[in-house]
Design a protein around this nucleic acid. Sequence first.
DNA 1: TTTGAAATATGAGTAATCCTCACATTTGCA
DNA 2: TGCAAATGTGAGGATTACTCATATTTCAAA
Lengths: 213, 213
Amino acid sequence: MEDTAAPASAQEQVASPRRAPTQQRSRERVERMLAAASALIAQQGSDAMRMGEVAERAGVSIGSLYQFFPDKRAIVWALAERYTAESQACISSALKDVTDAEGLRQAFSELVDIYYQLFLAEPVMRDIWSGTQADKALRELELADSRANAEFLTAVLKRLQPGADPVALETTAFLVWQMGEAAVRLAISVDRQEGDRLVAAYKRMALRELLEG
Amino acid sequence: MEDTAAPASAQEQVASPRRAPTQQRSRERVERMLAAASALIAQQGSDAMRMGEVAERAGVSIGSLYQFFPDKRAIVWALAERYTAESQACISSALKDVTDAEGLRQAFSELVDIYYQLFLAEPVMRDIWSGTQADKALRELELADSRANAEFLTAVLKRLQPGADPVALETTAFLVWQMGEAAVRLAISVDRQEGDRLVAAYKRMALRELLEG
DNA sequence: TTTGAAATATGAGTAATCCTCACATTTGCA
DNA sequence: TGCAAATGTGAGGATTACTCATATTTCAAA
């Protein structure tokens, strides 16, 4: 760490490419690097992923890898960002127009299913969101992300229960959201049948909390 | 890995000392190693913990460390085991004699508080239970542990609701238990005030699920 | 007390791996 | 065409988990 300039944000600290690819050629190469990393993570997990392997599989030199990613975490994080951006859009659109209890019931149920399917289908997701736990900076980012997502839920609750204590609603939404993430992670780490049961049980539990205060 | 003998269990694979200390002298030294590791983990996290530092702080050579711990994970795991054994005993005794709803309400509430306090007071706990997530073998062990703990809860539920579907009760207990672990981990990673609110909200949510099916 | 085998202690050395950097090549534009 | 910026390269530096040949200590049987 030669340069002592403080990073502008945690985001920049862990996620920003060392240098953004501006040319078509390099953009394609960065894509290949990410694809290679994704495949290797799916196979063996991000911890076992070797930078040399990523470079080889992407058909680039190790130096090129570091041209665009400051370190190993940055690659993992770049992959994670794609999924979270996707999720966030999904969450926002699903909850935006909810105005009554039945609407919430439906939207929430769909949302959980989508998350569950996403984690089931993408081994990278699972690895990333457990792997990041070990890393303080990434854990904080994940928390911030989760908080942001929970706010969509808070907004709905405030609409449905205008009289209720806002802080209580925020707490409920945040907790329910985090429980959901935990439930899905749990569900994908047991066999499919039990996973389905757990997700269903979570839905019941969460909806009761959301609807009945 | 020269010896190809299959480990007797996952437990042994990650946790067993390379060699159990039999003499008083070595038992004391192992204690010092664990104390040193604990202090370093509390300071910087288990990932940043260096084996050389542990040895130096314990006043032993690096070789001695590896005399009793097959690898870095084993040290972390040895620390974790102490806490989990302690917890398990606590859980068992708290839930053993529950026979009615009010008893469950009280015992469960106390249990959650104890967990919360334990995580608040022991930075090592927090680190360990997030750090292990990155490791497949440890994650599975943690899951097995959690399942075992949840069984105490299942037993209570079966007693309170003899007519209910046993599989459903097991699912509920396991889910509620896992949610509790997630809630506590969440609570300690935000400020104290919000943490308290989250734990309280979790208690309400969990108890409703446990008592009203 | 003697003795020798098992237990324990040591730390320089090995291997694996992340990441750097000095230099080569390519691209796009004036 | 020329040139500066962007991009590409891979041998090598630095760190660190872990090994192993060897030295020392313990303890119980002779």
